[in-house]
Design a protein around this nucleic acid. Structure first.
Lengths: 201, 201, 201, 201
DNA sequence: AATGAATGAGGTTTCATTCAT
DNA sequence: AATGAATGAAACCTCATTCAT
């Protein structure tokens, strides 16, 4: 039984790649730095991944795939929609803006033009699911008479906007001096805003 | 009087750079392609800008600077806050998600780690202003008794999130097959949602 | 055990660099030519040296360092000073004007302004040592009552002048048609002149 | 009558070129810096000189030509050879090591390989003349019974060596911290050494 | 006569990738 | 399986030189 299985090795490379790509973006990340982080030679990277592109793709796919299950609520039962929405928003912001995940939207946004199939994958795997989940949640609320909304799809986009905003803020602006975001508080207010709006009475 | 003034030339280079950087990001853009787009030699670029970095910085600064004035409402007078907010959101989404501007958040997000001072500049010049404008607008509504909001600052972030979402959607996801965003409709609904929330009654 | 060790490779690069820099000076030498001379790619040079500057510095330092030990007499014992001086001058001229070394003063002189720390290194490592050795030798002769000299330091400079002259003559003027220098004869006469002067009786 | 004649212009360019080439050597000197120093455009340089090479050649030729007359003693008359030699050495060192001239050996030595015809010109115009003058001077002394010397040509080289040494010392080593050379004292001692040698009695 | 603007040629350096061991 | 060594293909940038005005 080998001490380090090929799968282990792949995993350790992906972890290192996550750090490097998150730190510098695709183009500026160097295979040498990934290798050094793993503690192997550059050439050994190519035993596990065909190319820098392939490594990047694998990383992004993996992160998306491992992130999704924890994002979506399994089933609503007969819970009230406002509570569900609040729970969803809080959970989503917490997950997506977490240090291990927040780099993802940044990479997708930054490199999407050069890796269209990754952008597509993210769109289809993450965006559509999240938007769909929100939309269904709103529909659920409408069905229960708790929500009113002329266009649940667009409303879902607004909700998703707040979540993405949180991830980018933490990842892009906090490092350059922006006021740190209190994720819980942000989520709470985002939910309240979306639920009740600004207008009085 | 020369046919082509230095300022003209600078402007044409910036236009070309906008296309190239928007298309490929900083690292993958090639000075040669910028030059070809302008119709001049690579060396001529260096008469107008000291380096690729400098060109990128100049471009981002310029776009930010030229974008801002059209974004912020000059004064509220005694207009009702809901109308003001709706107008602001519609205008902001339209501006920021317009083809000439939408690449900007994408570049900032993608290259912010490698150009921290640009991220800082964007944060300080664009984000803070926009967030501030929304916040003041909400405060205006509160003062007039039209809005109620426990934390205008966080509410502003939620509003801004929708705007950024629109820009990124158009720039990142539409090119890979996402359903096109109807900006006006999106803005209308975003405003409605923020104003009145989802909850009935 | 590799057929070609890294140290070997470094050594072969330094040899090639010596030829190229000696032939053309720093600025006009091309890394490509150094590489071709070694029989490797340009990129491989950068595995051994960080930059053209670094290669140049390494070369000059190495040559200076390897030249020095053979230049200086270890100890005088009680040998007569005239014989010592004659031996020193002959040896020094032979060494410094030898084909492998003679390019060095030329490079130091030519590039010293652009590489001040090399000029300083040469001054401190070579010039001061050589001048000091000559000076001590003269002092030795004075102590033994064999030499008389109002200022041994300046006398040393005159002696060193002859040595440097020989190196430059061979390296700069012989290639353009100057009468070839007979090093042994030159050394002999230089020693005689310094010892006995021109004046009769 | 033009305020600035073409010859004036040429002269001012040559002066500027002297500064730049002396400071940086041929390759590292930039035409732009020469032009800026003159206060004209780069293009205007090419109205006076065909190329950077041509400018360099013109400069070196000019300096050599203007230096020579002041170096050589016109005629010896029946003056005693020791006094003549002392006078020659003092004058030569003073001239050649003077700030306006000392850069010349440095350039010749540094760039001679890349400009063989300049090295040849310097050799033929300067070196041979100087060496010849010294040699004739020694022959003059021998003829008068004041000097004894087995090989006046080689002796001349030794004398010349001291002179060149002085120029290089000032130009190469003093700028990097070498002890400043007292030219008069150096000349005095060089003459004494050559005349009387080190050996006592 | 003079120049601002432009360029072509060339140099250094980087880095993903390969291959012999 | 693993790697040290090597490389080819760019990319950025500089600068002597030219040319229309």
């Amino acid at each position: 039984m080998p001490r380090v299985t090929p799968a282990d090795r792949r995993e350790r490379i992906l972890d290192a790649a996550r750090e490097e790509f998150a730190e510098r973006g695709f183009a500026a990340a160097r295979m040498e730095d990934v290798a050094r982080r793993v503690g192997i030679s550059r050439a050994a990277l190519y035993l596990a991944f065909d190319s820098k592109d392939a490594l990047f793709r694998a990383l992004v796919s993996e992160v998306i795939t491992e992130m999704m299950p924890s994002l979506l609520p399994s089933d609503y039962g007969s819970l009230p929609a406002p509570a569900l929405l609040r729970a969803f928003v809080k959970n989503a912001i917490k997950r997506i803006a977490s240090p291990e995940m927040a780099f993802l939207p940044r990479l997708i946004v930054g490199e999407g033009r050069n890796f269209p199939e990754l952008a597509r994958f993210y769109h289809e795997t993450a965006m559509i699911c999240i938007l769909g989940a929100i939309e269904r949640l709103i529909a659920h609320g409408i069905a229960r008479g708790e929500f009113a909304c002329p266009d649940p799809k667009t409303a879902a986009q607004c909700v998703a906007g707040g979540i993405i905003f949180a991830a980018l803020w933490r990842n892009v602006f906090e490092p350059v001096g922006a006021e740190p975001l209190n994720v819980d508080w942000m989520a709470e207010n985002q939910a309240a805003l979306v639920l009740y709006g600004l207008t009085t009475g």
